[in-house]
């Protein structure tokens, strides 16, 4: 994360107090800020506050919202479906993050060998990242097709029974995980590669001279020094996984039997299918709290790590 760190290490060059202001400086500043402030204030800040307020009301969008205090939150906690959704989400997040990190780290380690054609591989891994999830989902629905889909054809070659990927309640969630990992793998590979390239080669050379084997060097040198990157990638992936929606909407619609109803999909249904906007907003704020905690965790740990590196 050399580049990212550099971007934050830049000192804020506040001009000294003695310098002459440019002509009409403050007035120009407000003029230049106006478009961004207007758009961000009206369409980002205001809705975030609004969402909080709406979460204490009962509202169907047609009539005026009615204040009901904490009733949305207590209703959520009393709803058995809420717990199912939370469990689905956690299962999705855990599977996604673990598989993504293991695969991405493996590929990044392989890429970090000063081999030829690194750029080409990196580009190939990145193609799914820049493709829309809707398009990706359509292609994977075809791959998952129980009768003609590529995956079951390959299983057939290996004399394995066909799997009803998207309609079997046991397989539906893992199927979504596979698509999501495939889509974002390249992103994490690039982040890991940047972290690996920041590790000085002298450490490895010294350890090799001392007779440390490849595995030993990986666990004693690479992994500890990769700590900050690992944490960053882990938390970013977790945040992304909590927000999963497109693939669920396209591939399973939350089914079969609610097996893939994750939190954002349920939020969407509550808001725009059942028109329970208060309940949807309460759900949104619970999600927000979790993600905010994760973001805060990332910032603090990151600051600590950077600080330690500068001290040492």
């Amino acid at each position: 994360m050399a580049a990212g760190k550099a971007a934050f290490a830049v000192p804020v060059s506040t001009p000294g107090p003695k310098r002459h202001p440019l002509a009409g400086e403050a007035r120009w500043a407000w003029l230049l800020l106006l478009p961004a402030l207007l758009i961000i204030g009206l369409f980002s800040l205001l809705p975030t506050l609004g969402s909080f307020a709406i979460s204490f009301t009962s509202w169907d969008l047609l009539g005026p919202p009615r204040w009901i205090g904490l009733a949305n939150y207590t209703a959520l906690l009393a709803d058995p479906l809420f717990y199912k959704v939370v469990l689905n989400t956690l299962e999705f997040v855990a599977l996604y993050v673990i598989i993504d990190i293991v695969c991405a780290l493996g590929l990044a380690l392989a890429l970090n060998q000063q081999l030829r054609g690194i750029g080409l591989f990196r580009t190939a891994y990145f193609l799914p990242v820049v493709t829309s999830m809707v398009a990706v989902s359509i292609v994977w629905e075809w791959i998952y097709d129980p009768r003609y889909g590529a995956l079951n054809v390959i299983l057939g070659w290996c004399h394995l029974p066909a799997i009803h990927w998207l309609s079997d309640p046991h397989w539906a969630l893992p199927s979504l995980v596979i698509v999501s990992v495939w889509k974002s793998l390249g992103y994490n590979v690039v982040l890991f590669l940047a972290g690996l390239q920041a590790i000085p080669t002298e450490y490895h050379e010294a350890a090799a001279v001392d007779g440390a084997t490849g595995w030993l060097r990986f666990f004693r040198i690479t992994l500890p020094l990769l700590g900050p990157t690992l944490l960053l990638v882990g938390i970013l992936s977790t945040i992304r996984a909590f927000q999963t929606f497109d693939a669920v909407y396209m591939l399973t619609h939350g089914g079969p039997r609610r097996a893939t109803t994750v939190v954002v999909y349920w939020l969407f249904q509550n808001a725009f299918t059942y028109f329970k906007l208060g309940k949807a907003s309460a759900l949104a704020y619970l999600l927000f709290t979790v993600l905010l905690f994760l973001t805060w965790l990332q910032w603090t740990l990151r600051k600590r790590w950077i600080h330690q590196e500068q001290v040492s």
Partner: peptide, 19 residues
């Protein structure tokens, strides 16, 4: 402005639609 980067889009969805 930085704080808005921490807010996931899904949180703003309902009020944004209403607006």
């Amino acid at each position: 402005i930085l704080a808005t980067m921490m807010v996931p889009v899904q949180v703003n969805l309902v009020p944004l639609f209403a607006l």
